[in-house]
């Protein structure tokens, strides 16, 4: 909700700045709304492009670009190659965000508790029900764990954050993959659902023994109690900007089509295991080439000059070589830059 409010406020502020600038419209991801809002504000004065972005949710954003009612769509979940071809779309990532695991265990401070992917899956499957379970104690030698019951909390509304989290659990646990799977909303085996990032944070805070997940930017700004996670190299890492950036840098972007990379569980001693890029969808047969050119110009400006703004909002900018690859891929879309 805070994100949405911020986006509205930013949108209103931007509206007064440049009236005769070229205006582009976009819709979709709420996760990326704060950064697009800030970029829009800055780009309006810098390159004269006025962005009108509606944070309606990834699914709705994909619907809108399929119907061509906006100039670009934004999705947290990469769109499948067949769907891209069917609707004549090209896809590129813009920024990266991490997902944190948050807990409420009296006496345990941020990043003291260590968890692994399989443990997290078993907790959300309801197989581990007490915090002093042997399996948790094994990876946390020396930490005094209470016997409190574990209360899992998840996003009740369809959300890209849920996709990243459940995708990670599917990688870590065959049982999770088979029983639940990965999507923007899934059939949760147990626990309570809360609406929005703020709902999950508040619910976890209210229940002793609670565990949930949140975008790292939200967790950081609200000083939530995060946990360490074990990464693919077997090292325990805390959710920091450095760990998120390491994971993005260690990923092999060259192998995937349409940039549809899965950043979960990347190799590297420093890498944070749960994170994802957010994507933009652009028509390859634009009604108005001038509009597509403006969209490209906007994101080109964001890549070149917007990295500081992104970092300030706790997003991780794309690695430079990936940004260059995106610029090359843009050639598939008519309309120069």
């Amino acid at each position: 909700m805070k994100f949405a409010l911020a986006a509205v406020a930013i949108g209103l502020a931007g509206f007064t700045v440049a009236a005769q600038a070229q205006s582009i419209t976009g819709a979709g991801s709420t996760f990326a709304a704060p950064i697009y809002g800030k970029w829009g504000e800055a780009a309006a004065t810098a390159v004269g492009i006025q962005l009108n972005y509606q944070a309606v949710g990834s699914g709705a954003g994909i619907n809108q670009i399929n119907n061509r009612t906006v100039d670009f769509g934004a999705s947290d979940m990469p769109v499948k190659a067949e769907a891209l071809a069917e609707h004549k779309l090209m896809q590129f990532p813009t920024v990266i965000g991490g997902v944190d695991v948050i807990i409420n265990l009296p006496g345990i401070k941020a990043n003291e508790l260590k968890l692994t992917g399989p443990l997290l899956a078993d907790i959300y499957l309801g197989k581990i029900t007490k915090w002093n379970d042997k399996a948790i104690a094994e990876v946390n030698p020396g930490l005094k764990l209470p016997s409190t019951a574990i209360a899992t909390v998840h996003r009740a509304d369809g959300s890209g954050t849920t996709f990243v989290f459940t995708d990670y659990l599917s990688m870590q646990s065959a049982e999770w993959k088979e029983k639940v799977g990965a999507s923007t909303s899934v059939s949760w085996p147990n626990g309570a659902g809360a609406k929005g990032s703020d709902g999950v944070a508040a619910t976890v805070r209210q229940i002793p023994g609670g565990i949930g997940y949140n975008e790292s930017a939200y967790a950081e700004q609200n000083h939530l109690t995060t946990t360490m996670m074990r990464n693919a190299d077997g090292k325990f890492v805390a959710p920091t900007m450095e760990a998120f950036a390491a994971s993005a840098a260690n990923a092999d972007w060259s192998k995937v089509q349409n940039f549809a990379i899965d950043l979960n569980d990347q190799k590297g001693a420093e890498s944070w295991p749960i994170e994802s890029a957010t994507f933009v969808l652009l028509p390859t047969d634009p009604k108005d080439e001038k509009q597509s050119a403006a969209v490209k110009k906007f994101f080109d400006w964001g890549f070149t000059h917007g990295n500081d703004i992104a970092a300030k909002l706790l997003y991780i900018p794309l690695p430079a070589k990936v940004q260059d690859a995106v610029r090359t891929a843009w050639k598939a879309v008519p309309g120069g830059m």
């Binding site: 699914g59 619907n63 369809g158």
Partner: peptide, 9 residues
């Protein structure tokens, strides 16, 4: 209300 925004047409 919760699922509508993430339901593709």
């Amino acid at each position: 209300a919760l699922e509508f925004p993430e339901s593709p047409a």
